[in-house]
């Protein structure tokens, strides 16, 4: 069953296209990473999928329904981010109780175990939690609600390293026990690449890349060698990224099927895989050479 279908989905916010003709289809029961730089449109896309925001044009379907203000989508999808607020009169205990009433698949046992594990106090107030604690608590809600579609928008904001690790472990274990569709957005791909099955790379409101994790790992190869030899080789081919490292050395990233790789190998240059996180940064680097160019 198709979980999410977007066709030419566009969202204008204050005259800018936050999403600019996005087209993709997500299938059920996968953990998908939504990767992109700040302002790429990750949050906008997730809010549209969650039914909070209305699309400007194009079509978007979640569970084959238009999500905006849709009750079925609201009941079967949960959107978790660090802006999640609850009424100030409710304690953490109250919030869990209320969530249990609202979400039919609520896993009370899991919620309580996570609540205890992260040593929350049922009487404390959500507003009074620190940023990382808030994210942790929101994560508990996101996991325990066991919605058919769970959207985590930058879920680890403010969490310390050990809690992040715990979170991704919990996510993976819970997913394996109860397979469902989870979309996680992040600009730190290296952090989540172990749990992801596929990624959507978006940039400037467009889907730049939509591939499985395995495909992404074999998408490109990095070559490093002497500048005066490597540079002429790269002239006629598509180069994803190129930079000078040290005196007279160049590092270049090209598609894995590029003929340059064979040539470089013949010159005895070092060829190796590119970490997905680096690749995503290179792919969306606006082809200007990055921050170094500013200081030239």
């Amino acid at each position: 069953m198709k979980l999410v279908e977007c066709d030419n989905l566009t969202k204008r916010i204050y005259g800018n296209n936050a999403l600019d003709g996005i087209t993709f289809t997500l299938h059920e029961n996968k953990i998908t990473g939504l990767i992109g730089r700040n302002g790429a449109g990750k949050t906008t896309l997730m809010k549209i999928l969650a039914g909070y925001w209305r699309e400007t044009s194009g079509t978007v379907k979640v569970f084959s329904e238009r999500p905006f203000q849709n009750l079925i989508v609201s009941a079967n999808a949960i959107y978790v981010d660090d802006q999640m607020t609850f009424h100030q009169s409710l304690t953490l205990g109250d919030i869990l109780e209320e969530a249990e009433r609202f979400y039919p698949n609520w896993d009370k046992g899991l919620a309580e175990r996570l609540f205890d594990y992260f040593s929350f106090h049922p009487k404390s107030k959500h507003d009074a939690l620190s940023k990382g604690r808030k994210s942790t608590f929101n994560m508990i809600i996101g996991l325990a609600s066991k919605c058919k579609l769970t959207l985590f928008d930058e879920p680890t904001t403010g969490m310390d390293a050990s809690v992040r690790k715990d979170f991704y472990r919990a996510l993976l274990k819970d997913y394996l026990a109860h397979p469902r569709s989870i979309i996680i957005s992040s600009h730190h791909l290296e952090e989540i690449e172990d749990v992801l099955e596929e990624i959507i790379l978006i940039d400037e409101g467009k889907v730049f890349l939509y591939q499985s994790m395995d495909e992404l790992k074999e998408y490109a190869q990095g070559i490093s060698g002497k500048t005066d030899i490597l540079k002429p080789l790269l002239d006629d081919v598509e180069v994803i990224y190129k930079t000078e490292i040290g005196a007279g050395n160049t590092y270049a990233v090209v598609r894995a099927n590029s003929p340059v790789i064979e040539q470089a190998r013949q010159y005895g240059m070092a060829i190796g895989p590119v970490a997905p996180n680096d690749l995503c940064i290179y792919l969306t680097a606006k082809h200007k050479g990055g921050i170094d160019d500013v200081f030239k």
Binding site: Q88, S89, L90, T91, D94, K123, K125, A128
Partner: peptide, 11 residues
């Protein structure tokens, strides 16, 4: 009410 964190029970 916010400052002293007066809860629902108080209400």
């Amino acid at each position: 009410q916010n400052r002293w964190n007066l809860g629902r029970k108080f209400g």
